[in-house]
Design a protein around this nucleic acid. Structure first.
Lengths: 118, 118
DNA sequence: GAAATGCTTAGCCATGTCGCTAACTATTTG
DNA sequence: CAAATAGTTAGCGACATGGCTAAGCATTTC
């Protein structure tokens, strides 16, 4: 039942998400592709510093970029976001399944108690 | 529509997830509470190093621990996992919404093209 | 073709992360 | 109470991360 996840990929995905600048870039990119300058504009940070964030996102496969003339355009990539979401969902489901079993168990015990009562 | 997320909390959640040892601990804890030693056993790592991971998880609010005698028991916490999952889901939804609008737009353009044809 | 634009590289610094060992404290247990 | 058990604290070293400035390299644009 449990899906296999690429551990190193998850490392990179989650690490990429663990920064507000990078999350903001992803949110911006949900509205469509943008150039490096456009993405950089809202962030009070030197361009080289910002570019580093973009590279982290790209190396993590969260975005793809392509150079057109002197402009580099970036767009969001679907799969990694889904992979991270799936991992969390699976974690939650495992946990909920266990809680359900505990519920079932305590109900069963209750029944048994009634049956066994003197 | 967009929920507000606590940025620093998301930083800690995602950072905590960005490590295989910590993800393994979370997976183990979906099956029920465990002591520090039990959690440590499968990991080829000195105990102090492992304890650091547990502290990261606890400071991020992903787990809660309690000392009982000389044993410290740990259990998973629901909310942060949900928060991270929700953030990713929101991101995906925004993005899908945009793709849907693009689909709608291209359909509309197609219709217009037919109507406008000579 | 000179100048502006848009990105890129190189290199520095401060801080954070992840592993380790050694030594210590607190609680059972024999 | 002595010894084993279960964590804990302190401190070290290697490397990663996130910011900066300065300088360089293509590609428009005038």
């Amino acid at each position: 039942m449990a899906k296999h996840f690429d551990t190193q990929a998850l490392d990179r995905y989650f690490a990429a998400m663990a920064d507000p600048t990078r999350r903001a870039v992803l949110e911006r990119l949900t509205q469509g592709p943008a150039s490096v300058s456009e993405l950089h504009a809202p962030h009070a940070m030197a361009l080289p510093s910002f570019l580093r964030h973009l590279r982290v996102l790209e190396e993590g496969g969260l975005i793809a970029t392509e150079k057109q003339g002197r402009v580099r355009m970036a767009r969001i990539e679907a799969r990694p976001v889904r992979a991270a979401e799936d991992w969390l969902a699976q974690l939650r489901r495992q946990w909920e399944t266990r809680l359900d079993r505990l519920d079932a168990l305590s109900e069963a015990l209750e029944q048994t108690a009634k049956g066994d009562a003197p």
